[in-house]
Protein backbone atom coordinates (compact mmCIF):
# COMPACT_ATOMS: atom_id res chain seq x y z
CA UNK A 1 0.00 0.00 0.00
CA UNK A 2 2.30 2.71 -1.27
CA UNK A 3 1.35 6.12 -2.60
CA UNK A 4 1.45 6.73 -6.33
CA UNK A 5 4.19 8.93 -7.66
CA UNK A 6 3.77 12.70 -7.27
CA UNK A 7 5.84 15.84 -7.08
CA UNK A 8 6.18 17.89 -3.93
CA UNK A 9 6.81 21.54 -3.26
CA UNK A 10 7.32 23.28 0.01
CA UNK A 11 6.68 26.99 -0.52
CA UNK A 12 8.03 29.42 2.05
CA UNK A 13 5.27 31.98 1.72
CA UNK A 14 1.58 32.12 1.14
CA UNK A 15 2.06 33.85 -2.18
CA UNK A 16 4.38 31.10 -3.34
CA UNK A 17 1.89 28.49 -2.29
CA UNK A 18 -0.91 30.20 -4.15
CA UNK A 19 1.30 30.63 -7.20
CA UNK A 20 2.12 26.93 -7.19
CA UNK A 21 -1.53 25.99 -6.92
CA UNK A 22 -2.36 28.36 -9.73
CA UNK A 23 0.44 27.06 -11.90
CA UNK A 24 -0.54 23.40 -11.54
CA UNK A 25 -4.28 23.83 -11.57
CA UNK A 26 -6.48 20.96 -10.58
CA UNK A 27 -3.59 18.50 -10.48
CA UNK A 28 -2.21 20.28 -7.41
CA UNK A 29 -3.47 19.71 -3.90
CA UNK A 30 -2.52 21.65 -0.78
CA UNK A 31 -1.08 19.52 2.01
CA UNK A 32 -1.87 20.67 5.55
CA UNK A 33 -1.63 18.14 8.40
CA UNK A 34 -2.03 15.29 5.95
CA UNK A 35 -3.85 13.05 8.39
CA UNK A 36 -6.56 12.38 5.82
CA UNK A 37 -4.74 13.29 2.61
CA UNK A 38 -1.73 11.03 3.16
CA UNK A 39 -4.11 8.21 4.03
CA UNK A 40 -5.88 8.58 0.71
CA UNK A 41 -2.51 8.71 -1.05
CA UNK A 42 -1.30 5.54 0.65
CA UNK A 43 -4.55 3.81 -0.26
CA UNK A 44 -4.28 5.14 -3.82
CA UNK A 45 -7.70 6.67 -3.43
CA UNK A 46 -6.34 9.94 -4.75
CA UNK A 47 -3.52 10.61 -7.16
CA UNK A 48 -2.67 14.30 -7.40
CA UNK A 49 0.38 15.08 -9.48
CA UNK A 50 1.60 17.88 -7.21
CA UNK A 51 1.40 18.35 -3.45
CA UNK A 52 1.87 21.89 -2.15
CA UNK A 53 2.96 21.60 1.46
CA UNK A 54 1.69 24.45 3.63
CA UNK A 55 3.70 23.46 6.69
CA UNK A 56 6.54 25.88 5.98
CA UNK A 57 4.27 28.83 5.19
CA UNK A 58 4.67 31.38 7.97
CA UNK A 59 1.74 33.08 9.64
CA UNK A 60 -0.83 30.33 9.27
CA UNK A 61 -0.68 28.99 12.83
CA UNK A 62 -1.81 30.21 16.18
CA UNK A 63 -4.81 31.58 18.02
CA UNK A 64 -5.33 35.31 18.55
CA UNK A 65 -8.14 37.52 19.70
CA UNK A 66 -8.94 40.82 18.03
CA UNK A 67 -11.90 42.54 19.60
CA UNK A 68 -14.86 40.22 19.57
CA UNK A 69 -13.31 37.74 17.20
CA UNK A 70 -11.00 34.82 17.86
CA UNK A 71 -8.86 34.03 14.85
CA UNK A 72 -7.48 30.52 14.53
CA UNK A 73 -4.81 30.05 11.90
CA UNK A 74 -5.60 27.29 9.45
CA UNK A 75 -2.41 25.37 10.22
CA UNK A 76 -3.06 25.30 13.95
CA UNK A 77 -2.97 21.66 15.02
CA UNK A 78 -6.12 20.16 16.52
CA UNK A 79 -4.45 19.79 19.87
CA UNK A 80 -3.15 23.34 19.90
CA UNK A 81 -6.61 24.67 19.13
CA UNK A 82 -8.05 22.78 22.07
CA UNK A 83 -5.44 23.75 24.62
CA UNK A 84 -5.00 27.40 23.60
CA UNK A 85 -5.71 29.73 26.52
CA UNK A 86 -7.94 31.95 24.44
CA UNK A 87 -9.95 28.96 23.26
CA UNK A 88 -10.36 27.57 26.75
CA UNK A 89 -11.50 30.94 28.04
CA UNK A 90 -13.62 32.16 25.13
CA UNK A 91 -14.57 29.10 23.08
CA UNK A 92 -14.89 26.20 25.51
CA UNK A 93 -17.00 24.33 22.95
CA UNK A 94 -13.86 23.87 20.85
CA UNK A 95 -11.86 22.79 23.88
CA UNK A 96 -14.52 20.22 24.70
CA UNK A 97 -14.69 18.91 21.15
CA UNK A 98 -10.97 18.56 20.60
CA UNK A 99 -10.43 15.32 22.61
CA UNK A 100 -13.07 13.63 20.45
CA UNK A 101 -10.94 14.09 17.33
CA UNK A 102 -9.18 10.80 16.62
CA UNK A 103 -6.19 10.15 18.89
CA UNK A 104 -3.26 12.12 20.32
CA UNK A 105 -0.84 11.44 17.46
CA UNK A 106 -3.43 12.55 14.90
CA UNK A 107 -4.37 15.64 16.92
CA UNK A 108 -0.70 16.59 17.08
CA UNK A 109 -0.46 16.80 13.33
CA UNK A 110 -3.91 17.40 11.85
CA UNK A 111 -5.01 21.00 11.41
CA UNK A 112 -8.26 22.88 11.75
CA UNK A 113 -7.87 24.36 8.27
CA UNK A 114 -7.32 20.94 6.77
CA UNK A 115 -10.40 19.69 8.54
CA UNK A 116 -12.44 22.59 7.08
CA UNK A 117 -11.15 22.05 3.57
CA UNK A 118 -11.77 18.30 3.68
CA UNK A 119 -15.28 18.80 5.11
CA UNK A 120 -15.71 15.25 6.29
CA UNK A 121 -19.34 15.21 7.45
CA UNK A 122 -18.58 13.09 10.50
CA UNK A 123 -15.89 15.30 12.03
CA UNK A 124 -16.05 17.75 14.89
CA UNK A 125 -14.56 21.07 13.74
CA UNK A 126 -16.95 21.81 10.88
CA UNK A 127 -19.97 21.32 13.14
CA UNK A 128 -18.41 23.41 15.88
CA UNK A 129 -17.81 26.20 13.38
CA UNK A 130 -21.43 26.05 12.30
CA UNK A 131 -22.63 26.18 15.89
CA UNK A 132 -20.35 29.11 16.66
CA UNK A 133 -21.32 30.98 13.49
CA UNK A 134 -17.70 31.06 12.45
CA UNK A 135 -16.34 32.55 9.28
CA UNK A 136 -13.89 30.69 7.10
CA UNK A 137 -11.18 32.92 5.69
CA UNK A 138 -10.00 31.90 2.22
CA UNK A 139 -7.13 33.20 0.12
CA UNK A 140 -6.95 32.81 -3.59
CA UNK A 141 -4.44 34.13 -6.08
CA UNK A 142 -6.22 37.44 -6.31
CA UNK A 143 -8.13 38.07 -3.14
CA UNK A 144 -8.99 37.08 0.35
CA UNK A 145 -12.62 36.33 1.04
CA UNK A 146 -14.71 35.38 4.01
CA UNK A 147 -17.40 32.74 3.88
CA UNK A 148 -19.83 32.01 6.68
CA UNK A 149 -19.61 28.42 7.88
CA UNK A 150 -23.27 28.01 6.91
CA UNK A 151 -22.36 28.71 3.29
CA UNK A 152 -19.01 26.95 3.32
CA UNK A 153 -20.09 23.31 3.62
CA UNK A 154 -21.88 22.38 0.44
CA UNK A 155 -22.00 18.60 0.26
CA UNK A 156 -20.04 15.43 0.78
CA UNK A 157 -16.42 16.61 0.93
CA UNK A 158 -17.60 19.68 -0.99
CA UNK A 159 -17.00 23.25 0.12
CA UNK A 160 -17.08 26.82 -1.15
CA UNK A 161 -13.34 26.64 -1.80
CA UNK A 162 -12.63 27.64 -5.39
CA UNK A 163 -9.80 26.06 -7.34
CA UNK A 164 -6.51 27.58 -6.26
CA UNK A 165 -7.88 28.79 -2.94
CA UNK A 166 -6.79 27.68 0.48
CA UNK A 167 -8.22 28.09 3.95
CA UNK A 168 -6.03 30.51 5.91
CA UNK A 169 -8.01 30.97 9.10
CA UNK A 170 -11.20 30.39 10.98
CA UNK A 171 -12.69 33.43 12.68
CA UNK A 172 -15.06 32.83 15.55
CA UNK A 173 -17.12 35.53 17.23
CA UNK A 174 -16.66 35.54 20.97
CA UNK A 175 -19.91 34.32 22.50
CA UNK A 176 -21.95 36.71 24.60
CA UNK A 177 -21.68 36.54 28.38
CA UNK A 178 -25.03 34.77 28.63
CA UNK A 179 -24.08 32.16 26.06
CA UNK A 180 -24.28 28.47 26.80
CA UNK A 181 -23.02 25.60 24.76
CA UNK A 182 -23.28 21.87 24.56
CA UNK A 183 -21.45 19.07 22.87
CA UNK A 184 -22.08 15.36 22.63
CA UNK A 185 -20.91 12.66 20.35
CA UNK A 186 -21.61 8.95 20.09
CA UNK A 187 -18.87 6.86 18.54
CA UNK A 188 -18.40 3.11 18.82
CA UNK A 189 -14.86 3.52 20.07
CA UNK A 190 -13.01 6.50 21.41
CA UNK A 191 -11.71 8.62 18.56
CA UNK A 192 -13.87 6.96 15.90
CA UNK A 193 -15.95 9.00 13.53
CA UNK A 194 -19.25 9.92 15.13
CA UNK A 195 -22.37 7.85 14.56
CA UNK A 196 -24.10 10.99 15.75
CA UNK A 197 -22.67 14.24 17.05
CA UNK A 198 -23.98 17.62 18.09
CA UNK A 199 -22.29 20.93 18.73
CA UNK A 200 -24.72 23.48 20.08
CA UNK A 201 -24.75 27.08 21.22
CA UNK A 202 -27.51 29.27 22.62
CA UNK A 203 -28.18 32.22 24.87
CA UNK A 204 -30.08 31.99 28.08
CA UNK A 205 -33.42 33.74 28.21
CA UNK A 206 -35.29 33.32 31.47
CA UNK A 207 -35.81 29.64 32.06
CA UNK A 208 -35.35 28.90 28.37
CA UNK A 209 -32.98 29.38 25.48
CA UNK A 210 -32.75 31.71 22.54
CA UNK A 211 -30.46 32.05 19.54
CA UNK A 212 -30.14 28.27 19.53
CA UNK A 213 -27.77 26.83 16.94
CA UNK A 214 -27.72 23.06 16.63
CA UNK A 215 -24.98 21.71 14.39
CA UNK A 216 -25.21 17.97 13.85
CA UNK A 217 -22.42 15.86 12.39
CA UNK A 218 -22.27 12.32 11.09
CA UNK A 219 -25.90 12.67 10.12
CA UNK A 220 -25.91 13.88 6.54
CA UNK A 221 -23.55 14.51 3.67
CA UNK A 222 -22.33 17.65 5.48
CA UNK A 223 -22.61 19.19 8.93
CA UNK A 224 -26.18 20.35 9.36
CA UNK A 225 -27.55 23.38 11.14
CA UNK A 226 -30.94 22.13 12.27
CA UNK A 227 -32.98 25.33 12.18
CA UNK A 228 -36.45 23.95 12.78
CA UNK A 229 -35.27 21.86 15.68
CA UNK A 230 -33.58 24.95 17.07
CA UNK A 231 -36.77 26.98 16.71
CA UNK A 232 -38.74 24.29 18.51
CA UNK A 233 -36.20 24.25 21.28
CA UNK A 234 -36.42 28.02 21.62
CA UNK A 235 -40.16 27.50 21.99
CA UNK A 236 -39.49 25.04 24.77
CA UNK A 237 -40.62 22.06 22.70
CA UNK A 238 -37.89 19.44 22.96
CA UNK A 239 -40.14 16.73 21.62
CA UNK A 240 -40.97 18.87 18.63
CA UNK A 241 -37.30 19.54 18.11
CA UNK A 242 -36.56 15.84 18.10
CA UNK A 243 -39.37 15.16 15.65
CA UNK A 244 -38.15 17.91 13.35
CA UNK A 245 -34.80 16.17 12.93
CA UNK A 246 -36.39 13.58 10.65
CA UNK A 247 -36.66 16.22 7.94
CA UNK A 248 -33.51 18.11 8.71
CA UNK A 249 -31.07 15.21 8.85
CA UNK A 250 -30.30 12.63 6.20
CA UNK A 251 -28.18 9.95 7.87
CA UNK A 252 -25.88 8.07 5.52
CA UNK A 253 -26.24 4.43 4.56
CA UNK A 254 -23.33 2.77 6.27
CA UNK A 255 -22.64 -0.94 6.55
CA UNK A 256 -22.45 -1.02 10.32
CA UNK A 257 -25.26 1.28 11.38
CA UNK A 258 -28.74 1.83 10.01
CA UNK A 259 -29.81 5.38 9.15
CA UNK A 260 -32.75 4.93 11.55
CA UNK A 261 -30.29 4.27 14.34
CA UNK A 262 -28.34 7.42 13.57
CA UNK A 263 -31.48 9.52 13.50
CA UNK A 264 -32.58 8.02 16.79
CA UNK A 265 -29.15 8.70 18.30
CA UNK A 266 -29.34 12.29 17.06
CA UNK A 267 -32.59 12.71 18.93
CA UNK A 268 -31.11 11.20 22.07
CA UNK A 269 -28.11 13.50 22.09
CA UNK A 270 -30.30 16.48 21.29
CA UNK A 271 -32.29 15.67 24.41
CA UNK A 272 -29.14 15.31 26.46
CA UNK A 273 -27.44 18.43 25.15
CA UNK A 274 -30.61 20.51 25.44
CA UNK A 275 -31.11 19.27 28.97
CA UNK A 276 -27.62 20.29 29.96
CA UNK A 277 -27.90 23.70 28.32
CA UNK A 278 -31.23 24.30 30.03
CA UNK A 279 -29.69 23.40 33.33
CA UNK A 280 -27.88 26.60 32.70
CA UNK A 281 -24.33 25.59 32.50
CA UNK A 282 -21.63 25.59 29.93
CA UNK A 283 -21.51 21.84 29.73
CA UNK A 284 -19.73 19.50 27.49
CA UNK A 285 -20.16 15.80 26.96
Amino acid sequence: MKAPDFAYARPASLDEALALLAAHGEDAVPLAGGQSLVTTLNLRLSAPSVLVDLNAVPGLSGVTQEGDVVRIGAMTRHRDVGVAEIVRARLPLLAAAMPHIAHPAIRNRGTIGGSMALADPATEWPACCLALAATIVLRGPREERRVAAEDFFQGLYATALAPGEIVVAVEVPVPAPDAVWGFDELARRRGDYALAGLAATARRRGPGLTAVRLAFFGLADRPVLARRAAAALEAGDLKGAQVALADELDPPEDPGTRPETRLHLARVILGRVAGRMLEGGRHGA
Binding site: M1, R10, N42, L43, D53, A105, I106, N108, R109
Partner: peptide, 25 residues
Protein backbone atom coordinates in the same frame (compact mmCIF):
# COMPACT_ATOMS: atom_id res chain seq x y z
CA UNK B 1 -3.54 4.47 7.04
CA UNK B 2 -3.01 6.07 10.39
CA UNK B 3 -5.24 3.87 12.52
CA UNK B 4 -3.16 1.22 14.27
CA UNK B 5 -0.46 3.39 15.84
CA UNK B 6 2.39 0.90 15.40
CA UNK B 7 4.49 3.44 13.48
CA UNK B 8 4.15 6.24 16.04
CA UNK B 9 7.38 8.24 16.47
CA UNK B 10 8.27 11.56 18.05
CA UNK B 11 8.59 14.47 15.64
CA UNK B 12 9.80 17.67 17.29
CA UNK B 13 8.89 16.06 20.58
CA UNK B 14 5.35 15.12 19.69
CA UNK B 15 3.90 11.71 18.92
CA UNK B 16 3.00 11.38 15.25
CA UNK B 17 2.10 8.66 12.79
CA UNK B 18 5.15 8.01 10.62
CA UNK B 19 2.87 6.57 7.93
CA UNK B 20 0.94 9.84 7.65
CA UNK B 21 3.94 12.12 7.22
CA UNK B 22 5.86 12.29 4.00
CA UNK B 23 9.53 11.60 4.45
CA UNK B 24 10.38 14.92 2.78
CA UNK B 25 8.43 16.67 5.54
Amino acid sequence: HGVCGACTVLVDGRAMRACLMLAVQ
